[in-house]
């Protein structure tokens, strides 16, 4: 059914484009597909995809590492939790464009998307992971203390099963966001050889077909990355749930 719905809207798009009759205003799906086909044969296209992917995914992974670390520390020390609360609230409330323009003053445009995707993902991972850790059954933790269960077993069989749903939720929210904010940073910072730069150039030269094609590329990479990360997390969760040997 979702495929049929998607097909319906592509059809609407095609009809609207034909009715308008001006590719410069609304490129047709056929035109976008043809442009994408041209892209695939160009090394510069793969270069731009690689450039942006490495940086945005890098920022995402850095945010996950830092977010989980901070959540673990904050769960143990209330003072850290109190200290981080206004900071995460401020990051969540500040428009991404403000951060991008501000960060351009400090960071070379080449690495701007790393920082911006890191900054946008960090509070989501931190808050979700912290909620998960704080929600772990206190009775089970007392049981583990009495029976002197090893830290490794506590992590695998008590903490992770409770924290995993929160991490999956954080992943599904942050994966799309890191691509939106990362590409926005590239469009403003214009690092050479990035998707953002190509998107900007397509807009400047009124190449609407290319503009749409790059947008489709961003959506495809974002969705593929999201599916991959969520599949990995769910596989890990299933493995934990299936585990009978301790």
């Amino acid at each position: 059914m979702p495929a049929i719905a998607a097909l319906f809207w592509i059809l609407v798009w095609q009809v609207a484009s034909m009715w308008l009759g001006q590719e410069i205003l609304l490129a047709s799906p056929v035109r976008v597909l043809a442009t994408l086909w041209e892209f695939v044969g160009q090394p510069a296209f793969w270069g731009a995809v690689g450039f942006s992917f490495v940086r945005i995914a890098g920022g995402f992974l850095l945010a996950w590492t830092m977010g989980i670390f901070l959540a673990v520390v904050a769960a143990r020390h209330q003072s850290v939790r109190i200290l981080l609360t206004p900071l995460t609230a401020a990051v969540k409330a500040t428009p991404v464009a403000s951060f991008i323009i501000l960060a351009l003053v400090w960071i070379p445009s080449k690495n701007l998307s790393v920082f911006i995707s890191f900054l946008m993902v960090l509070p989501i991972v931190y808050i979700n992971c912290l909620q998960g850790i704080l929600g772990v059954d206190a009775g089970l933790l007392e049981m583990a203390r009495v029976f002197r269960v090893s830290p490794r077993r506590r992590l695998l069989y008590i903490y992770l099963p409770d924290v995993m749903p929160y991490l999956i939720s954080a992943a599904s929210v942050s994966l799309g966001l890191c691509w939106k904010s990362g590409v926005a940073a590239e469009v403003i910072g214009l690092p050479t050889g990035s998707i953002g730069e190509s998107l900007y150039e397509a807009k400047v030269f009124m190449l609407t077909g290319e503009l749409f094609a790059w947008t489709v590329v961003i959506i495809l990479i974002s969705v593929a990355f999201e599916k991959l990360i969520l599949a990995l997390l769910r596989a890990l969760q299933r493995r934990l749930e299936r585990t009978v040997r301790v």
Binding site: V146, R148, Y157, L240
Partner: peptide, 25 residues
């Protein structure tokens, strides 16, 4: 001294099997 306990509540890991709950400790 090392204690073992049965608590007022069972305090078992819900997703683990009976055997895994025992082997865990």
């Amino acid at each position: 001294k090392r204690a073992a306990a049965v608590f007022q509540e069972d305090r078992l890991c819900e997703r683990l099997s009976a055997i895994a709950n025992i082997l865990l400790v």
